[in-house]
């Protein structure tokens, strides 16, 4: 009976180690910090990237269209600002995913 419930301690393991293992098994010790915080922010990042790219183009198109209406130079500013908007969108995404400091 005693042998089954309490096997001989394996050599090389101290009491603290075995106690630690037993506590982890029964869930008494706090689990190692999960990476849910990382998951959350990276999921948030994924959500941001796509829209970020489009939004700048939308703003660029709106400004270009407005300038054209005002100055009557259709479609010069529309073309110019859609291109600039596209660049700005890529800059946005780059700032979002760029590694290290220097990102804003």
């Amino acid at each position: 009976m005693g042998e089954e419930t309490r096997p001989d301690p394996p050599a090389g393991k101290t009491f603290e180690q075995r106690l630690g293992e037993a506590r982890t098994r029964s869930g008494m010790d706090p689990q190692p910090v999960s990476d849910s915080a990382v998951d959350r922010s990276s999921l948030g990042l994924v959500m941001r990237v796509g829209v970020e790219l489009v939004a700048a183009v939308v703003v660029g198109a709106a400004i270009g269209w407005g300038l054209d209406r005002w100055l009557g130079l259709r479609p010069l500013f529309l073309i110019l600002f859609v291109l600039l908007g596209g660049i700005a969108g890529i800059v946005n995404v780059w700032r979002l995913v760029a590694p290290g400091p220097g990102t804003r």
Binding site: V51, V54, A55, V59, L84, G85, A88, N92
Partner: peptide
Amino acid sequence: VPIEILTFLSRPVS
């Protein structure tokens, strides 16, 4: 400068 301004203005849109 226009690119930076567009990046800035695209924030509320996105």
